[in-house]
Design a protein around this nucleic acid. Structure first.
Lengths: 210, 210
DNA sequence: TTGTTATATGACACCCTGTCATATATAATT
DNA sequence: AATTATATATGACAGGGTGTCATATAACAA
């Protein structure tokens, strides 16, 4: 997180810096983000930057608060709308990610975020951990278990991990430019179908089991 | 791939260089690998290195041929042994990855490979694409479809993608040091169980459907 | 012996990051 | 008002990296 000094910054200076930061994070993937470029565009001296942020990662963390907040709100809304249907929720998460990544504002940034993120950087682990605890605390107990073929918490946790992993991978594929939004969505639904056949207690292929 | 010049190198020089390279790739994750360090250890001038390799990635690609070859052989063997049981095959792949990553020889290297790899670097995409085509060409038609609840090639492809994704993620977790080998294996088997309930045509929870 | 092609070499230009001693405000206290 | 603390600003500097290129040298062919 940025230093106290950063938060005390006069609005004008703060905004100029943030604009430069967003520009740089949209220009190139994270690993290539250059503090030099940022300070050059923001017209602040090198020393100042390091007075505000510990390093690049610190900046990323700060920017991501937006993204995370938006995502959380969206999830909240989705889970209400679909009354605890985890599959509908995951589809919404994918949709929102695609949507956000196609937006003029954060598009390039989100795209770089997904495509350049290291599988296992310290940051990524934290991000996943945070998302997970967010998710578990807020939503896990609101999932409708009635329709699921799940007998204990351990199984539920496993199921969620599978779903999150597949959803994430699907988003990555989209941002890698391997497929367009529609193909990605279609493929995702097909995969959900496959998974459902196991996850759902009531399966249409076996009416006698109801 | 390395240049012709590299392959013409006298054995002694070649080996010294390769030893330096492996040492460096074991020291730090790929993103931190330093050509400087390599040439220093191998005692060759900077210019020579660039006579042999285009860049770091070029080196990685070359090293990986070993890994890929070993994996291919292992898969080949496994698919014979288990007579097309895709789940047993995936378990074997995970086991082999864990095993290789725990070995004295390539351990550190494999560990770094998994933990630092960018989700979507050009290299990674190629790697996955190659693995996939290897996989599909060689093994896809040897999978025993009789036990699977799969009706067409498209579904089969989706199923495989899910399995590969989950297996990969599991390996990443292991290499991130989040869990030890046994926990990882146990969790993986639990997940396979969940997936099987859907993938398998004959399910133990529903004897009447056989 | 001379011309040709393959290989070797390290100085160079250019990029980057994080730190630190020093300078300058701003606020607090006598 | 003068002095002392405290917060912020600054850019030169040390140390690390990459890829290239003109030039030197070796190997081979005519």
């Amino acid at each position: 997180m940025p230093t106290k000094t950063f938060f005390n910054l006069p609005e004008e200076k703060h905004d100029k810096l943030m604009r430069a930061i967003k520009q740089e994070f949209s220009r190139v993937p994270f690993s290539q983000v250059s503090v030099n470029k940022i300070i050059q565009v923001a017209q602040i001296p090198r020393g100042s930057f390091y007075q505000y942020f510990k390093n690049k990662t610190d900046v990323l963390e700060y920017i991501l608060r937006d993204y995370r907040a938006q995502m959380r709100a969206r999830i909240q809304q989705s889970i209400e709308t679909h009354r605890g249907d985890i599959f509908a929720l995951m589809s919404d998460i994918l949709d929102f990610t695609i949507e956000l990544g196609s937006s003029r504002d954060m598009g390039a940034f989100i795209k770089h975020l997904f495509s350049d993120m290291k599988v296992n950087s310290g940051f990524y682990i934290d991000f996943v951990r945070n998302s997970k605890s967010d998710f578990q605390e807020t939503f896990m107990n609101r999932i409708d278990l009635e329709i699921l073929n799940i007998s204990d918490t351990r199984e539920l946790k496993n199921m969620l991990e599978i779903l999150v992993t597949i959803t994430q991978r699907t988003a990555v594929r989209f941002f890698a430019g391997m497929y367009d939004a529609d193909s990605v969505r279609r493929q995702y639904q097909e995969k959900l179908m496959l998974l459902k056949r196991g996850f759902l207690k009531e399966r249409n292929i076996c009416a006698c089991c109801k």
